[in-house]
Amino acid sequence: MSGAPISRPKLLALQVLVAAAIIGIWHIGSTVPIFGVHFLPKFFFSTPGDVAARVVKLFATGTIWKHLWITLSETILAFVIGSVGGVLFGFWFARRPLVAAVFDPYVKMANALPRVVLAPIFMLWLGLGIWSKVALGVTLVFFIVFFNVYQGVKEVSPVVLANARMLGMNERRLFRHVYWPSALSWMFSSLHTSVGFALVGAVVGEYLGSAAGLGYLIHEAEGVFDVTGVFAGMVILAAFVLLVDAAVTRIERRLLVWRPEAGGRG
C-alpha cells in the first residue's frame, strides 16, 4: 500500500482540501436552495458563516477564556493525579506479585465499569465544581497509566536486568536506572491516550452538570436548540484538543529520543 513518501506541503494542501470540501458542502447545503429546498436546514445544521461568527464573538467578548481555563485546569489536574496514582500503583503491583494476584479481579472489574455512571456519584460527593470533573478524568487516566506502568516494569528485558545487577546496582539504583525508565517509556507511549481521556472526563463531567467549561457551553446551547452555539463549542473544543495533542507530541519527542520509533503502544 505504501508508495513514495508524500512531501509535507502536498500533504498539508490535501488536508486543507478535505476541510474546504466539507465546509463547502455544508455551506452550499445550508444556504443555497437546490430545487427550492435546503439539504441541510439551518435549524439543524446552522451554517459555517454563523458558526465562524459565533466563535469570533466568543473570543471577542472574552467569555470563552473562563470556560477554556476551567476545562484546561480540570484536564491537567485529572491527568496529573491519575498519572501519579497510576505510577505508584503500577509499581507497587508489579513489584509485589501477591498484591497483583489478590487485586487482579477487582482491578479488572473497576476498569470494566463505564465511567459515565460514576459522574452523578462524584457530583453528589464533590459538588458541581471542578473536582467532580477531575475525579471523573482521574478514573479514566489512572487505569491507562496503571496498566502501562505495570507492563513497563514487568517487561524489562531479563538480560538488561541481569546486566544491571552484575554492574553492581542495588534495588534503589535498579529502580532509578532500569525500572523507572522502562515504566516511563510505556507511560509516555500512552500519553496521547491518557491526556485525551483526561479531557473527555472533564468535558463529559461538565456536560452532565456544571456552571462553566466547554462541556457546559455546549450543553447550555443544546438546551435552547442553539445549534450554532453547539457547533461553535465543538469547533473550539476540537481546536483545543489539537493544541493539547501538539504539546504532548513535543514532550514525547523530547523524552523518548532513545526509542527506535516513538509512540505506537497505548
Binding site: 528485558s157 538480560v159 538488561v160 541481569a162 544491571a164 536506572h177 532500569v178 525508565p181 522502562s182 532513545w258
Partner: peptide, 12 residues
C-alpha cells in the same frame, strides 16, 4: 559479565 545477548540499557 559480558552477555551474549544485547544487555545495554536502551534508554541510555
Amino acid at each position: 559479565y559480558l552477555f551474549q545477548q544485547d544487555a545495554l540499557m536502551p534508554w541510555k
